[in-house]
Design a protein around this nucleic acid. Structure first.
Length: 415
DNA sequence: TCTGGGGTCCTCCCGCCG
DNA sequence: TCTGCGGCGGGAGGACCC
């Protein structure tokens, strides 16, 4: 212990920044004429792309007449809504809703395809701006980041509010987009706080605010408590974070398991020591696709085989482009009843080769029942290593060797 | 005509090994 | 030699997130 600190150490201040209605806002920058109208984004790309392609020639995107955009009522096919503008939400349309159902609720809504490339461009821009100010930033997807304000100049002023305001302005100036920021003692609370004042808001939360601001919230607001855990908590009469905090740690462990129970106890008391992580390596990469119609392993064998090959080629290209190799190859099926089956197999050397993935994936497919119609097929490569790294170059077969599980006898020599 | 795609992490189970 | 046990890693499935 030293006795020489004349100034108090900085208090841990973590920010969570969340772009407001990100996809929809980016689309409205492109198509300002759609402002105030019900718009949904999502759906099978091909069909909507076609509709967009048929828009009149000439001028800029902003000149395209509103009445030439595709409407939800004319849309046919599968798919879900990725996001909807507020005018669309007033009709009860929302994320993850099937497009057919949405079309009944709001047939006049304009439907736009998801354009991830464009969202990623904006994503890179706003993250670059943040990094210029605060170097400790954790990427949490295309529209979200955590930022460690603790040691950033000005990061302690007003509990972080000044810095948050500065970031909001810099991002708005550069992109025309607004965001909401929560600043708190840790990531858990910061994440909740960023939702307090949406859109374009700032919320600053201190440790002392736990009881007033966090405990009244429904458990579902905790990042990590999803629909299943929430339902189970409700069955025990636990609706709010405060009610969760009132439960005994041992009781939570007994009812939710060692890790989850202990974690629930910690979060309910606002405790979270996870650092802001600036770099991470991917664990797996995958490609999957939902078919336009359900396919059958026997009747649609050729079509399925072609789709599978294409997925493997796309995945291999992804790996090569990003510079990774992997040694656990897996497949995923979704049946017409929405049940999912997965199979994995670890091979004895790292690969990013489409043929190897295709072959090993084919072996996995032989181990899965193929009687029911399928609606989705996916392929995945895990246990990744950087291409060319010592690990990736290690001699094959150095690990434990084990025979793959016996193939289930099915119709599936097809693949 | 419900219900996407791309991820991470956790749990449970099982087989292998000492 | 048999049995029990714990550690470990792989495989399967599920919950959750953006």
């Amino acid at each position: 212990m030293s006795s020489q600190t004349p100034t108090a150490p900085p208090i841990r201040r973590i920010a969570h920044l969340d772009m407001d209605a990100f996809y929809a806002s980016v689309e409205l920058l492109r198509y300002p004429q759609l402002k105030g109208l019900p718009v949904v984004i999502g759906g099978g790309r091909r069909r909507v792309d076609e509709a967009i392609r048929n828009l009149p020639e000439g001028g800029t995107l902003a000149d395209i007449p509103v009445d030439s955009f595709p409407l939800l009522k004319d849309y046919t096919g599968r798919g879900v809504i990725t996001t909807a503008t507020y005018p669309a939400r007033q009709f009860g349309v929302g994320s993850a809703m099937g497009l057919m159902k949405a079309a009944k609720l709001c047939p006049q809504a304009i439907i736009l395809p998801v354009d991830f490339d464009e969202y990623r461009r904006y994503s890179r821009t706003f993250k670059k701006i943040i990094l210029e100010v605060a170097p400790l930033m954790e990427d949490r997807g295309v529209d979200e980041v955590y930022i460690d304000f603790t040691d950033v100049p000005g990061g302690q002023r007003d509990g972080g509010r000044s810095l948050a305001r500065l970031l909001q302005k810099a991002i708005l100036d550069a992109t025309g987009l607004t965001c909401s920021i929560g600043v708190a003692p840790n990531k858990l609370i910061a994440k909740m706080a960023s939702e307090f004042n949406k859109p374009n808001g700032i919320s600053v939360v201190y440790e002392d605010d736990l009881e007033n601001l966090i405990w009244p919230l429904p458990c579902r607001k905790v990042n990590g408590i999803g629909p299943k855990a929430d339902e189970k908590l409700k069955r025990f009469g636990i609706e709010t974070v405060g009610q969760l905090a009132a439960r005994d740690r041992d009781w939570l462990v007994a009812n939710f398991g060692k890790a989850t129970g202990a974690w629930m106890h910690e979060v309910s008391w606002g405790r979270d020591s996870r650092p802001v992580v600036t770099e991470s390596e991917p664990v797996s990469m995958s490609r999957e696709t939902t078919f336009d119609r359900d396919l059958h392993a026997v009747r649609d064998r050729a079509e399925l085989g072609a789709i599978f090959t294409k997925l493997c080629e796309q995945l291999a290209a992804d790996l090569q482009r990003k510079g990774y190799v992997g040694k656990t190859i897996g497949i995923k099926l979704r049946y017409d009843d929405f049940k999912i089956a997965t199979r994995d197999q670890t091979i004895d050397r790292f690969t990013d080769d489409a043929k190897t993935i295709r072959h090993t994936g084919g072996l996995c497919l032989k181990r899965v029942p193929l009687e029911r119609p399928l609606r989705l097929l996916g392929v995945r490569v895990g246990a990744l290593a950087k291409a060319g790294s010592p690990e990736a170059l290690a001699p094959a077969g150095s690990g434990t060797h084990r025979a793959a599980a016996e193939p289930v006898a099915t119709t599936a020599s097809l693949f």
